[in-house]
Design a protein around this nucleic acid. Structure first.
Length: 587
DNA sequence: CTAGGGTTAG
């Protein structure tokens, strides 16, 4: 009785909000025991993505799987299976899609075109050629390969995986090609990087739709060819929000924020993606202020907008602001649930602040809310734990990574560097090289600082010189660490020579390292040289000058020390005067 | 079939 009523409602229920209500009703009524046919109807009418529904489906599937063959979904026919498979694929659960398709096949259910196209799409997304091929074979056997949708799905699969000849063959076999078939082939040429052939295909499409245009424009935009992208954009007859977003994203990638902003302002119906594209552009170019302005201007912020803004703060050295916004996100009753993406930025912010106790909070938050730790979140946690000296946890996380990459190795090596664990840093470095994971500038910063902190000058030199072997030019920062290392070892002359040999302008950090070392060794000669450069490079010179004064004092040059301090006082005075004068003119 | 969010140094 109840089921019949529910079923009736489900049929009527096209509005997502209602679907949610009904879903709640299903939960209350122990949905695990409802007949499967009800399941696919729920899915069929639940138009909007919702975590609840996904977990709901997962539970249903688990029930199916754990109940062995005998209880294999009675009444779940080809159509129902197809709906389930399609549902998962539509919600980007691609691994699950393929798994479910295989489950269906193993249950002896003949595939529907729905199931096949969804499974093919999923295989393409997760680059699973093996299952993709067998699905192709099954489609052939079931006589589904005469269906345009299935054939187009094959073109899509082979295109995505870079088998452009096979894609072309599948395309040629389609009797009644539709625009989606053409677009899939176009996608294939774009994926394989053959822009010329892609352009020829594009020109041949009889009825180009907005996706055809968007595909070709996005390929020009990705290449950085914004003049072609823009002229095509201006030519296209009907623009979708995606078209605008592609163009804006293209300008953002070229760091042309002015132009990006022009199109952003001109865009009629901006959506959340548009705003996020702009925010991330400002984030990458370090323009936190503009990002902030846009963020406050935005009326209906979704969770991804918060994620973007938090990341913006975290990436631009404003960890406190990142945390403030994060707590706002938690406090506002918007129902935004932080996930692994939000947390990776938040952990990074805490790490920058040196608040290592935060790790425990995150841990309990993760277990409480069932968030799955992925490699990126692990990496930020590794950084946090290494900085806090919690090596056990860091190493455990590190060994548990799905795929160790340059960033995670660098985080480990940097952590070793901070804690003076040069041997371990070196071991990790050799390990990553053996695994053909290429080190970058950050890796060497960490490694060099490990040698520097342990006073291993010989090793440091070897490491510094080996950077060329990895096609890396030492940056001013790397020179700075070397100067620091040599200086601490008392080799001031050598450090000075190294600075003079630098191919780029030494920055204040480099000279500062020499100044610091001069202080440790009470060497006024190099202290003077270093300090004069520092004063030249930085607006606030008081710290450098007082350091020099200390050096003078320690070597007994009282007059010089006094002169420096006097100069400092005068500078301070003129600054205050200047300030009060500016303030005075305001009124 | 097209558009958006994350991790390592300074």
């Amino acid at each position: 009785m109840l089921e019949a009523r529910l079923r009736f409602f489900l049929h009527k229920c096209v509005l997502p909000g209602q679907a949610k209500q009904l879903h709640a009703q299903l939960v209350v009524n122990r949905y695990d025991h409802l007949e499967p046919i009800l399941v696919h109807q729920t899915l069929h009418f639940t138009k909007e993505f919702s975590r609840d529904v996904v977990s709901y489906v997962k539970r249903i599937l688990k029930a199916f799987q754990s109940s062995k063959v005998s209880a294999a979904p009675k009444g779940l026919d080809t159509f129902s299976w197809g709906c389930l498979v399609r549902f998962l694929s539509q919600h980007r659960k691609f691994k699950e899609t393929v798994a479910l398709y295989i489950e269906m096949h193993n249950s002896g259910i003949p595939p529907s075109s729905h199931a096949v196209t969804s499974a093919l799409r999923a295989c393409g997304k997760i680059e699973n050629m093996i299952d993709g091929d067998s699905i192709h074979a099954q489609a052939l056997k079931s006589g589904l390969c005469g269906c345009v949708y299935v054939q187009t799905g094959l073109v899509g699969l082979y295109s995505r995986l870079g088998y452009i000849e096979m894609a072309k063959r599948a395309f040629d076999e389609i009797a009644n090609k539709n625009t989606v078939s053409w677009n899939s082939l176009l996608h294939g040429y774009l994926e394989s990087g053959d822009l010329d052939e892609a352009r020829r295909v594009f020109d041949k499409i009889p009825e180009k739709d907005v996706v055809s245009w968007n595909l070709i424009i996005s390929s020009y935009a990705k290449k950085g060819d914004m003049s072609d992208a823009t002229s095509l954009f201006l030519t296209m007859p009907l623009k979708s929000p995606a078209s605008w977003n592609i163009l804006i994203g293209g300008y953002v990638n070229c760091r042309e924020m002015k132009l990006a902003r022009t199109y952003f302002d001109a865009m009629p119906q901006k959506n959340s993606v548009t705003w996020i594209t702009m925010l991330s552009g400002y984030t990458k170019s370090g323009d936190v202020q503009s990002a902030e302005e846009l963020f406050t201007q935005m009326s209906k912020k979704d969770k991804l907008v918060y994620d973007t803004m938090i990341a913006c703060y975290a990436q631009n050295g404003k960890p406190k602001d990142a945390l403030k916004l994060f707590s706002q996100m938690l406090e506002s009753n918007s129902g935004f649930q932080p996930d692994e993406i939000t947390l990776s930025s938040v952990v990074s912010a805490n790490s920058q602040l040196g608040d290592t106790s935060f790790g425990t909070w995150v841990e309990s938050y993760i277990t409480e809310h069932g968030i799955q730790i992925d490699d990126l979140l692990s990496t930020s946690l590794i950084d946090l734990y290494m900085k806090g000296g919690d090596f056990d946890k860091a190493f455990k996380l590190f060994s548990g990574l799905d795929k160790k990459d340059t960033v995670s190795y660098s985080a480990m090596i940097t952590g070793c560097g901070i804690n003076g664990m040069a041997t371990e840093a070196n071991r990790l470095f050799r390990e990553m090289v053996e695994k053909k994971i290429s080190p970058n500038q950050v890796t060497f910063t960490g490694l060099l600082s490990a040698y520097s902190h342990s006073g291993l000058v010989q090793e440091g030199y070897k490491c510094f010189n080996s950077m060329n072997d990895y096609d890396l030019e030492p940056s001013a920062d790397h020179y700075g660490i070397m100067v620091d290392m040599l200086g601490r070892a008392g080799r001031l002359e050598e450090a000075y020579e190294l600075i003079k040999s630098m191919p780029m302008q030494p920055n204040a950090g480099v000279w500062g390292a020499l100044l610091l070392a001069s202080g440790l060794r009470n060497n006024a000669e190099f202290g003077e040289i270093a300090c004069s450069h520092c004063v030249e490079l930085e607006t606030d010179s008081s710290g450098y000058l007082s350091h020099l004064a200390n050096i003078y004092t320690s070597v007994g040059r009282w007059d010089d020390a006094r002169n420096v301090r006097k100069a400092m006082e005068e500078k301070k005075l003129s600054k205050t005067l200047g300030c009060s004068w500016v303030q005075g003119s305001d009124h």
